[in-house]
Simulated scan of single mutants.
Amino acid sequence: MSAGLCVCGSGKKYAVCCGPLHGGRPARTCEQLMRSRYSAYALRLEPYLLQTWHPATRPARLNLENDQTRWLGLKIHSREKGGADDRQGWVSFSASYRSGQETHTLNERSEFVRLPEGRWVYLEGV
């Protein structure tokens, strides 16, 4: 995967986009975290998803190893706050995916917060 384009749709190579975040580098913005989480779903990186989820809303497990969902694309519609100096931010996006023989689109406005140690995490989505 490291030689190809990142599945988050940024147009950048995985090795300079979501790869470093999956390897432990913290996200600078909530949009960057959103993209890396989408890529983690596509790549089935359950530990990363759980690590970047707020402890108050994080599930115990995701069971991605048995998930047959195939993620097809991510489109970011807007970002509110969530920059390097913010404590909170929101990203509105749509993500298309295939489950069985059907194609679906997930539309969400995700809320992100910065933990006291400075790390962005996903809180919840509507």
Rank of each mutant, 00 (worst) to 15 (best):
24 G>I: 04
25 R>L: 15
26 P>A: 08
27 A>T: 15
28 R>P: 05
28 R>Y: 04
30 C>E: 12
32 Q>V: 01
33 L>S: 11
33 L>A: 09
35 R>H: 13
35 R>Y: 07
35 R>A: 13
36 S>L: 00
37 R>A: 09
38 Y>T: 00
38 Y>G: 00
39 S>T: 09
40 A>L: 10
40 A>M: 07
40 A>P: 13
40 A>N: 10
40 A>E: 12
43 L>F: 04
44 R>P: 08
45 L>E: 15
45 L>K: 13
45 L>D: 14
45 L>Y: 06
46 E>Q: 06
48 Y>E: 09
49 L>D: 14
50 L>T: 01
50 L>E: 01
51 Q>H: 10
54 H>R: 09
55 P>G: 04
56 A>M: 02
56 A>K: 06
56 A>I: 03
56 A>D: 14
57 T>D: 02
58 R>I: 06
59 P>L: 12
60 A>C: 00
62 L>I: 00
62 L>K: 06
62 L>F: 03
64 L>C: 05
65 E>F: 08
66 N>T: 13
67 D>C: 08
68 Q>W: 01
69 T>A: 12
69 T>P: 02
69 T>L: 13
70 R>H: 06
70 R>S: 02
71 W>K: 08
71 W>G: 02
72 L>C: 10
72 L>I: 09
76 I>G: 05
76 I>W: 11
77 H>E: 15
78 S>G: 07
79 R>T: 15
81 K>Q: 14
84 A>R: 07
84 A>F: 02
85 D>N: 12
86 D>A: 04
87 R>K: 10
89 G>I: 00
89 G>W: 01
89 G>S: 03
90 W>V: 01
90 W>C: 02
91 V>I: 06
91 V>F: 10
92 S>G: 00
92 S>F: 02
92 S>L: 06
94 S>C: 14
95 A>S: 07
98 R>V: 10
